Amino acid sequence: MTLPPRTGRDALTPRPLSVQRGVNPHAPGSAHLKLGRTEILATVSVEDKPAPHMRGKKEGWLTAEYAMLPRATTDRQARERNLQNGRRHEIQRLLGRALRASLDLRHFRNQTLYVDCDVLVADGGTRVASVLAGYAALHDFADRLIHAGKLSEWPLAHAVGAASVGLIGDELRVDLDYAEDKVARADLNVVATDAGLLIEAQGGAEEGPITHAEYVRLLTAGVEAVGALLRELHRQL
């Protein structure tokens, strides 16, 4: 098998990351993130009403939505209008779990936070890039609340990020682009904190079973890649 080439990075180095916060003047928190050629716009909105299942609870709630714009890919995709689209629903649940893990929701009692992640350009890793963009938007949101005097305590309990990792032939690579992702014989999307605490691992084998040792290598490399990406993200925030 001929491995897709990598330009300017080795197998364990993520793609270049850049982030700009506060890009949407109407949103209380926002970020535009690039991971290689993948681009995500994330915004935070607040509704002063609890989610139905959180009425009477001491915590607020965070929910996430994900969408891919029609020309995010090489060919135009129909605009996503069906909220029950299987892939979209799966990604939204992943984003919600990841971003809720970053927040101390006791600061938002009787409120619902919405994090919208829109894929502007897709070149692999859109869900992991959306986790990073969503966290960056929440960081922008939290910073604005502190500076406006609306909160006296930093509400982000954990720095949360995500990275993709896969086996292409016998080579382990992190942060797969589209060309790599489509030929990987196994891949994982790993969500973790900057301290190396695992939140979620999502994925599996594509071309037959893999060994326990291979899975552990994937998971370990994914957690390490998350740490590297979050260090770069915080450097720019």
Rank of each mutant, 00 (worst) to 15 (best):
G227H: 05
L156W: 02
L198K: 08
H234M: 04
A184L: 08
R15S: 13
N189H: 10
V115P: 00
L41E: 05
T2C: 06
G96F: 00
A133I: 10
A201N: 12
D48R: 12
A101P: 11
E39N: 12
V226R: 06
L218K: 03
K150M: 11
E180H: 02
L3M: 15
N24I: 14
V128I: 14
A98K: 05
G227L: 07
S30A: 02
D187N: 09
R93A: 06
A201Y: 04
H53T: 10
E80S: 15
V183K: 01
G208E: 12
D140R: 00
A162R: 05
L176H: 00
S45V: 08
K150S: 15
V23L: 02
R97M: 10
N82C: 12
R185F: 12
E206Y: 05
A228V: 15
D118A: 15
D123N: 11
S45H: 09
Y135G: 01
E207T: 13
L156P: 02
I210A: 07
R37Q: 15
E39M: 08
G134C: 04
A98Y: 00
A42M: 04
L35P: 05
V115T: 02
A133G: 00
K34V: 09
L156C: 00
L105W: 09
R15E: 05
N189I: 06
H32S: 03
M68K: 10
P16D: 11
S152H: 09
A101E: 15
D187A: 02
R21S: 11
A136T: 00
V19T: 03
G22L: 00
Q20P: 01
R185I: 01
K150I: 07
S130A: 10
V183H: 02
T7K: 11
D194T: 08
E200Q: 14
S45C: 11
A72H: 10
